[in-house]
């Protein structure tokens, strides 16, 4: 976990500046110099102090132009178009009328939107917590949770390398597959879950996991999303923990730190940056939850905002749907800002 330590002084001010205090008037020559390689650039221009700036930015532009163009065309421009369409009544036809904030007013008064948002926000708050806590716990167990072996300050629990692979399995499956599999697991008549409960004599706990109670469907969805992402975070956090030098642990050990103290005083602070990044990423995944909910949950039991948005599209209410999309964008940004703020700490270098 190297942090950026490069000082922002920049080389140009300290660099040797050629004598050129001379204010050359060469406008056209200067303009030409933008495309000319240095060796063909007239000496006069090359000695101009402004030429250094030009040369530098020309260099940056040279390697940024293409990726930026792609980014602009395929990422930024759809965003801007979506924002534009959110102020229209576009219905998929050839024309779209500007309707101002009508879509947003409609959204404000749309009970179904608020219902869906409630589920989505719950997912946003709860799922990252579950996933990250589990991920960190498993990762800690894998890297530092085991017995102390001779000659090693820390080691994972027995079989940790196998666990690491097993945890990652769900990440290999496509999300659609996960949703289909879990739908079968949750099935109240032929599902694995109810079958298991029944076979160990816990028939009383059998539930209609998806089609019945609204809260239960939300809970079931949370469990599936957390299950499918935990593996990724185990690997991410293991890598972060693996990067912590062993001598830090040795020092803690010498000071008499137990496993819990080591974790809270040493490991967690040192991987905090990764946790924060993971949190943002997981939050956005949870806010989305589109595929899992669309495929797995019967539509009458649970609606999340992205699915609601999708249904607006299906009904040809493109203007309204994009307005919902814009709100989702704003929500993800607010969420990211909050996480980045509350998680801010001094960076530790090691």
């Amino acid at each position: 976990m190297k942090t950026e330590t490069q000082p922002a002084t920049g080389g140009q001010t300290s660099g040797k500046q050629p004598s050129g205090r001379t204010r050359t008037s060469g406008g056209p020559a200067f303009a030409l110099a933008i495309i000319l390689p240095p060796r063909f650039t007239p000496e006069r221009v090359r000695n101009d102090r402004r030429y250094r700036t030009l040369d530098k930015y020309r260099f940056i532009v040279g390697f940024l132009a293409l990726p930026l163009l792609f980014y602009a065309v395929f990422v930024i421009s759809p965003f801007l178009q979506a924002i534009y369409y959110s102020f229209t009544d576009w219905a998929g036809g050839a024309s779209a009328n500007f309707v101002g904030g009508d879509n947003y007013v409609k959204m404000w008064n749309d009970e179904k939107f608020w219902d869906s948002l409630q589920s989505s926000l719950l997912l946003l708050v709860v799922v990252p917590l579950i996933t990250l806590v589990l991920g960190i716990f498993f990762a800690y167990m894998i890297t530092a949770g085991g017995r102390h072996r001779r000659g090693q300050a820390i080691s994972g629990v027995a079989g940790s390398s196998i666990y690491k692979i097993v945890y990652f399995f769900p990440q290999v499956l496509s999300i659609a597959l996960i949703a289909v599999v879990w739908q079968q697991v949750y099935s109240s008549r032929s599902g694995l879950l109810n079958g298991l409960l029944g076979s160990v004599g816990l028939e009383g706990l059998e539930q209609r996991w998806l089609g019945g109670d609204y809260k239960l469907a939300l809970f079931s969805t949370m469990a599936v999303i957390a299950w499918s992402f935990v593996g990724f975070y185990v690997v991410l956090f293991s890598a972060a923990m693996g990067a912590i030098p062993k001598d830090v642990y040795e020092a803690a050990l010498l000071d008499g730190a137990g496993r819990a103290a080591t974790f809270f005083r040493v490991t967690l602070p040192l991987i905090w940056d990764t946790v924060r990044t993971g949190w943002v990423y997981m939050g956005i995944q949870a806010l989305d939850a589109f595929a899992v909910v669309l495929i797995m949950v019967p539509p009458h039991a649970l609606k999340v905002t992205p699915v609601y948005l999708y249904e607006r599209f299906r009904e040809g209410q493109f203007g309204y749907a994009t307005a919902i999309g814009v709100v989702l964008l704003v929500l993800s940004m607010i969420f990211t800002l909050i996480v980045m703020r509350i998680g801010r700490r001094d960076q530790i270098e090691y």
């Binding site: 490069q6 922002a8 920049g10 080389g11 660099g15 040369d55 530098k56 930015y57 260099f59 940056i60």
Partner: peptide, 8 residues
């Protein structure tokens, strides 16, 4: 001769 830093 170029020195390009992150800020730029």
């Amino acid at each position: 001769t170029n020195s390009v830093n992150r800020r730029d």
